[in-house]
Design a protein around this nucleic acid. Structure first.
Lengths: 114, 114
DNA sequence: TGTATATATAAGCAAATCATTATATAATGA
DNA sequence: TCATTATATAATGATTTGCTTATATATACA
């Protein structure tokens, strides 16, 4: 009974995070590729603090992880999150966003350090 | 390309609506049973305008339909919505909420008109 | 026809959200 | 060591959200 209520609440919390175009696209990209903050800044043509704040929300609930690699901080999907199976079924239904990374590569702004 | 962007945007719009505990639970219930407004008022112990406003948001994007039956207005899932397959895959992962309707039946507040 | 019931809608308000600007921190490289 | 680059965080403000209260409308029923 109680467990059920908690699960619906937790699902709603995740869906609320996904109810933002930027965060949803981030998650779709991260499901296939790690990315650093500055790549997202390029992809979304958004300010760096704005991107950092979106990533922080995703990190705060354990959906993504951060890892420093030299000068950059890379984000990746946290596949060991309890709700990853739920998350994955949603992301699987979204159109591939690889073209956004391809554009960065063509521009030469994709970070391929480490 | 453009189509892709629109689809992600549309998905984000739906997920934003689902990012609310009340609306998400409503959708899960409606996926199996039609319900009228006063039943939701009982289930969520919420005010009637609050429930009506949530239902309106779901209706405005075509996720649910309304239909008058005598004194009551019943809401149902709109399975012909383009995004219903997407919606259904999300709802399928949520715990069954039938116990909420059972409680109404036990209380005698379930509407079974028409 | 008048009253009660079910619902929708409008207006107002507090809280949440999302961007911006400003600043701090950490790593790199000259 | 100093300047640059990448990032996080704090503070602020505009917008959105979700509730409440008040009111309008439609049906049912005596």
């Amino acid at each position: 009974m109680l467990k059920t209520a908690v699960e619906i609440d937790k699902a709603a919390m995740i869906l609320k995070l996904f109810g933002d175009r930027t965060r949803l696209t981030m998650m779709k990209i991260l499901d296939h590729h790690d990315c650093c903050v500055c790549e997202f800044v390029e992809i979304f043509q958004a300010s760096q603090p704005s991107i950092s704040q979106h990533l922080r929300k995703l990190r705060d609930v354990g959906l993504v992880r951060e890892e420093r690699r030299g000068q950059w901080i890379f984000y990746s999907i946290n596949k060991s999150n309890d709700y990853y199976p739920f998350v994955q079924k949603i992301l699987d239904q979204l159109p591939d966003q690889d073209h956004k990374l391809k554009e960065l590569e063509e521009q030469g702004t994709r970070i391929t350090c480490c």
